[in-house]
Design a protein around this nucleic acid. Sequence first.
DNA 1: GGCCAGGCTATGG
DNA 2: CCATAGCATGGC
Length: 307
Amino acid sequence: MSPRSCRCQTVLLPVRDYDLDATMDSGQVFHFAAVGGGWEGVVGRDWVRLGKEREAISVSFVARDAPERSQLLERVARFLQTNVDLSRIVATFPNDGVMERAVQVCRGLRLLKQEPWQCLASFILSSTKQILQIRQICAVLSERHGPAVDAESVVARWHGFPSAEQIARLDEKDLRACKAGFRAPYLLGAARLVAEGKLDLGGLDEVPIAEARSRMMEVRGVGRKIADCALLFTGSHAGAFPVDVWVARALRELYFRGREMPLRELEHFASEHFGPHGGYAQQYLFHYVRVHGLKPQAARRTSTRPP
DNA sequence: GGCCAGGCTATGG
DNA sequence: CCATAGCATGGC
């Protein structure tokens, strides 16, 4: 049938200072696909297409009755955090030249609020993987083992991300077949802990960050960095500050003149320097160095490399 | 074809 | 305590 006769409805979510592309493409979420200038993916159990509008984000979805529609829109707004006043967060960033440039360059970059299990699982799969490959693994995992959802996409059939229960029923070799590699047993172990109720991801925002971290790090395959990603990108702890290879490089080059620094010291510096929304600042640093490199003031080591 | 990727665990000093 | 090999897989 013709894809133009659409069962879709579209609603506008008003928002200012929101760069949807940067946000979706900044390595915090791996389950949306760029389609025709917008983004398609699954929120909860519902397929959505997100589009950029003036002072708004358009949300398209398969038509349904009024109560379900308002529930869906509430979930999408919560996921996108459209109610967050970005300027209030940016105002808490440290008053240094590095963050001023990062804010200029990444204007409108946001943090999303993702579902805890999906977020943790994705970052377990992220270790020593490029962002493109993380997306691929998540896509295969969803296609093969996640719930099919009703979608009006013209480019793909969509599935949700498999629940902890669904993954817990699988075998390690099923996960290796999805390109999970050596992370397969880690993901399986995490899924079993969550499915058996031995790890309550929903309660982690109610305990101090140190406690939340150590609970998560009891999962094999989850260290400090992945724990902080899961705490930050689910909106549980605004002070979580994941230090990966990019952020470590950025901190060394931009704050320590390129000097070698132990990871622990970088993490400690970050927790002191970037304020109550350190995690947000971290995302600006990450995106800044990934998109623009470290050239502006720290080109010493790379100056022989062609631009 | 070599290097590196939003790391972590185990092992050896 | 700190340092590093090993781990799967694929993009560039």
